[in-house]
């Protein structure tokens, strides 16, 4: 059985586009990435799955049950971490977590302790006094405390420092090994690449690509910036896979998708004085690659 099945889901907010004809499945036990630039429709899709909003047409099921019609029942097995966490005024962390646990008919106190220790979270503090990153940790513990079989995360890592991000990913991988299915939305390609088995890429409300992660990993995107020591022809780096080539004096910069050895071979043939290799952000990748493939 698939953990999530989304069929021809369309949502309009009045006249403005939310998502159009979105369909994909998330298999039980996999970590599924859902990526796209901001405003592409990731949160809309997730909010429909959670029955916070209703689709204009189409349907979604979670563990075989319609996610809108049977929302209260379906939600027993779902844990959700929103992109921004907001909680009630004047509550302590532990009060909030106990309140959250009170909705599930099981004892979660041991789990709360384990998770908050793993995430290094102080339970006695007032939530209002916490930093953004610490609030996010409350959200993580809150979303996982009932051991959900399906974990839905909307932009989970924003606000977490790299060390916490690492811990959080380990936590997710641990949950996944125990059998939890994970749907993770993000606009950062590298975090999806790090965690996911498969991805769906959404742009302007439509799914434009659905594939296994290793296929996407072959499409290695890098932004190169090279200071050359001696002048080279302006089109020296103009070959297949190179995009957005800019030359300013001795600095050549471009986006590259493909086998990285092609670049290193090219580099070996010239003298350089400096070299930067960066992860381009998703907007950049979309602008130079996926817009043409449509």
């Amino acid at each position: 059985m698939n953990a999530i099945e989304i069929r021809n889901l369309t949502k309009y907010y009045g006249k403005s586009r939310g998502i159009i004809d979105v369909s994909f499945d998330v298999k039980q036990g996999e970590i599924f990435g859902f990526i796209g630039p901001n405003g592409a429709g990731k949160s809309t899709t997730i909010r429909i799955l959670l029955a916070l909003i209703y689709p204009t047409s189409g349907s979604a099921t979670i563990f075989g049950k319609d996610s809108i019609k049977y929302a209260p029942e379906v939600m027993k097995d779902v844990g959700y971490l929103p992109s921004e966490v907001f909680y009630y005024d004047g509550m302590k962390v532990i009060d909030l977590l106990r309140y959250s646990a009170s909705f599930y008919k099981k004892d979660c106190s041991k789990r709360i302790k384990e998770l908050s220790e793993a995430m290094d979270l102080d339970l006695t503090k007032k939530i209002d006094d916490l930093s953004f990153g610490n609030k996010k940790k409350v959200g993580i513990v809150q979303g996982l405390l009932h051991e959900p079989k399906l974990i839905i995360l909307d932009e989970p890592t924003s606000g977490l420092d790299p060390l916490m991000q690492q811990k959080f990913f380990e936590l997710l991988e641990h949950e996944n090994k125990k059998g939890a299915t994970i749907l993770l939305s993000s606009h950062v390609l590298s975090e999806v690449q790090r965690l996911c088995n498969r991805v769906a890429i959404i742009k302007e409300g439509k799914i434009i690509k659905l594939e296994a992660m290793n296929a996407l990993n072959e499409e290695n995107f890098k932004r190169f910036k090279i200071d050359v020591a001696a002048d080279i022809p302006k089109n020296y780096f103009q070959f297949d896979g190179v995009n957005d080539l800019q030359v300013k004096g001795k600095t050549h910069s471009f986006l590259f998708k493909g086998n990285i050895n092609e670049i290193t071979q090219k580099l070996a043939g010239i003298k350089i004085s400096n070299l930067w290799v960066d992860e381009p952000d998703l907007e950049e990748i979309f602008m130079h690659y996926y817009s043409k493939e449509e």
Binding site: L50, A51, L52, A71, P72, E73, V74, M75, K76, V78, Y80, P82, E84, V85, F86, Y87, Y88, D89, S100, F103, Y104, Q142
Partner: peptide, 17 residues
């Protein structure tokens, strides 16, 4: 207004309750 819908409404309770 406090943006807590995403907390409360994803719990296993119906809106009516």
């Amino acid at each position: 207004s406090d943006k807590t819908t995403e907390f409360l409404m994803v719990k296993p309770v119906s809106r009516s309750r």
